[in-house]
């Protein structure tokens, strides 16, 4: 089963997604994996990673750092049934799009990310994907950023279509979009 959890920054997506992963994994005794996509460049991202690590402490997740080619995370997992929490679509998409200092075309990026997540979905018992609502600020960004947002839009639409559940987080509360 795939669940997409989407929301703005500071909406409580991470905490809710972890809760969900723990509940699902606990019920079916699967192993829990946390796929971390953030590339740590500076103090701010280091602190963010620390905060999320602390949140997950003691919940029994095995963390896999996988900033690109998300399907390769499967090679780092053990056999058996697994519950996987992927956080998050925006980092993964940015890493895929802007790797090696040049911008890849949005379609190619969207297809790769979708394909990678589809592999995860097929080979896990539960997959929880944390998405990001970056679509509602009305800002006309430069073409580079707009292409990135369009790729994010295409990925989110495809994930929502394939997911059994879509949940939007609002002030820390889950609102069901698809159930």
């Amino acid at each position: 089963m795939m669940i997409l959890v989407i929301g703005g920054s500071g909406s409580g997506k991470s905490a809710y997604a972890e809760e969900l992963a723990c509940a699902l994994a606990g019920k079916e005794h699967t192993r829990k994996y946390y796929l971390a996509t953030m590339q740590v460049f500076d103090e701010e991202s280091r602190r963010k990673v620390e905060r999320h690590r602390t949140l997950r402490d003691g919940k029994g997740f095995q963390t896999i750092e996988q900033p690109v080619r998300i399907e390769d995370a499967l090679l780092k997992m053990g056999d058996g049934r697994k519950t996987v929490l992927l956080e998050c679509v925006s980092n993964l998409t940015a890493n895929e799009m802007f790797a090696q200092g040049q911008q890849k075309p949005e379609r190619e990026v969207a297809q790769n990310v979708i394909k990678g997540i589809e592999r995860l979905r097929k080979e896990t018992t539960h997959l929880i994907v944390v998405g990001n609502n970056v679509f509602e600020d009305g800002i006309a960004y430069d073409e580079t950023t707009t292409a990135y947002i369009r790729a994010m839009g295409a990925i989110h639409q495809k994930l929502a279509e394939r997911a059994e559940q879509v949940v939007e987080m609002v002030v820390g509360l889950p609102v069901s979009v698809k159930a």
Binding site: F135, E136, I149, R150, G153, A154
Partner: peptide, 11 residues
Amino acid sequence: MKLITGGYAQG
């Protein structure tokens, strides 16, 4: 009249 709203690139 019907009104449809939502973010950019949401289909």
